[in-house]
Design a protein around this nucleic acid. Structure first.
Lengths: 188, 188, 188, 188
DNA sequence: AATGAATGAGCATTCATTCAT
DNA sequence: CATGAATGAATGCTCATTCAT
């Protein structure tokens, strides 16, 4: 029962955060729509912020787990970035709500996008590929931060695009989207 | 004196919105830091939303004016997009606060970025270039919406990057940033 | 011009007070709809209350003047009350807005209906008739206050009724309404 | 404890509404004088209007219950109206504050006294008697609306009178007041 | 663990009134 | 006289959080 209520709260919160925004969603509304008392919400999460962060960590862990399971590190840089690109889009379009929540969350913690950056830094595999690309002169711009930022904004844009247009989310279009990314950032 | 108070309010509001977020900035704080009474704020702007929108329109008009003055339409598509890219980055880095405000504003009106999209649509010159590029098969992806979205997210990313790293905001790097954009999206 | 603006304010105020209630009508609205500046309103009337009272006195004077002009004192008590009854209804139905304003006003100053009572006391003719009726034993209830209150509430009720149903405001019905009043209060 | 706070709020609100008027009584004052936090008031009543309506319904239900318990329908029209007259005055003078509140409330919902009219319509017994009186030609004026309005204003007037002069609220005077009412309206 | 009544600082907004021009 | 920008106390209402049961 414990886990159940906790999960009800998390699910409801995510849905409402995505629909109306995090700041615009009162905890009272979350509790009501989750079918629990307001006290119950604060029994499981000391503050609203903790609830938000908890949600973020669960979602981000899910993304990490998804990628770690499927990632093959024994490939060249381009292929590794291609893998990550595909995994991000696959996971993102398969979990529309999570993707929208991550957008909301990263904006709330907007301050030189450090939050979302930090997050990605935890996925060392990803970071390693960027570093290797930069160091080996594969990128037009030899600043790691630029390369990371460029990836993040582009993967966000593409994920949002494919979520908004599911009918265009075909293997060819995803491949094309990666080409657009790669031919842009790489030294032709 | 009229213009002065009104302007004090607008300036203070923008600063606070950028620092703390629009939703997180109380009108009372704006009034206090602007050195006016709360009633004065509501004398000039009927609601907080009107103040926010007024700010948006003033800033957006400034951007539009800047670009219209400098844009030379008698060039090929790539050159026109290159001009817009430069103008966006020039204006954006010269008005850091405006850029941050636009980020805040467009997120508040977040609905698959429609707000910022619509806004850009008003700059017909820009839109025409995208259309021409798509129609004449210059782009890898022949969907106008993709091309617009791709531009917007990339120009936002680059503007934020150059604001965060002013020392790297050199002609060569801007040119490089455009190359990254253009070699990505175009059918090179 | 002075008198004009003042009158515009008074007229507009009355209309708005009747439509929306006195407390619910902001002075700013009165000024705007009257086409004058807020400062102008307070130039002519020091406070909102003064404006309200001024309106009351103008209207009440109008009623008084109307009645004094037409009243014939050389008749018996019943006939004098009948005259007042008719004059009240004639004036009240001919000036619907004034009647509604008086209702609003007397309610605002509601406190054992003293306001409206006092007002009527100034019309000595009326008061004298009540006194005579009571003293000479013509009324069922020998309390002057009862007789006054009874008259006031009944004349208000009848005025409102005839305003709401102008098609029934015929000489016969007015006569009937007086009969209802008189046969009630008098020692038939 | 729950019921207690809610009741404290209702009681305090009624007292203040009667003393100062509904519009002139801030919710903050109600909360303070009731000894609760402002949030508590809005926990029990979503809006000030809801609080006002709740008060009205509680009071009106009390009146209805009082009358339904005591009313004997097996009597002629005059006797039935006489019963209602007595019940209204008994209840009204026994609950002065309720009576004053009803005056305040019905004026706030002022629109040719429809609110108080509607309310009485719910007491079908009362309405039925009026209808029977009109239809059987017992009244001087054969318009049901007139008869209802006439009753309402007269019972209000008499209730207010007996509240203001409790020493005159004797059986003989109440009987006399009914005679004044009845000999007026009826085709004696 | 779960509840939900209670809290009160905080918020957007209103409005009668003032005063410099 | 007329103006309307400026004022700021006051208002109805919100919401994250607490706590007794």
């Amino acid at each position: 029962m414990n886990r159940t209520k906790r999960e009800q709260i998390l699910e409801t919160a995510m849905r409402l955060f995505v629909e109306n925004g995090i700041q615009a969603t009162p905890t009272s509304q979350i509790a009501k729509k989750a079918g629990v008392a307001t006290g119950t919400l604060f029994h499981h999460f000391a503050t609203k912020e903790e609830l938000v962060n908890e949600l973020y960590h669960e979602i981000f862990s899910s993304l990490l787990a998804y990628q770690k399971e499927r990632f093959n590190p024994d490939t060249d840089v381009r292929e590794r970035l291609r893998q990550i690109w595909y995994l991000d889009i696959e996971w993102g379009t398969a979990h529309e709500e999570y993707s929208h929540f991550l957008e909301r969350y990263s904006f709330l913690h907007y301050a030189s996008e450090s939050a979302i950056n930090e997050a990605h830094e935890r996925f060392e595999t990803c970071l390693a590929a960027f570093k290797e690309a930069v160091v080996s002169g594969l990128t037009k711009f030899d600043d790691l931060e630029y390369v990371k930022s460029h990836y993040i904004w582009n993967i966000r844009m593409n994920t949002m695009y494919f979520i908004a247009h599911p009918e265009r989310c075909t293997p060819e279009n995803i491949e094309k989207s990666f080409e657009i990314y790669w031919q842009g950032i790489s030294n032709a």
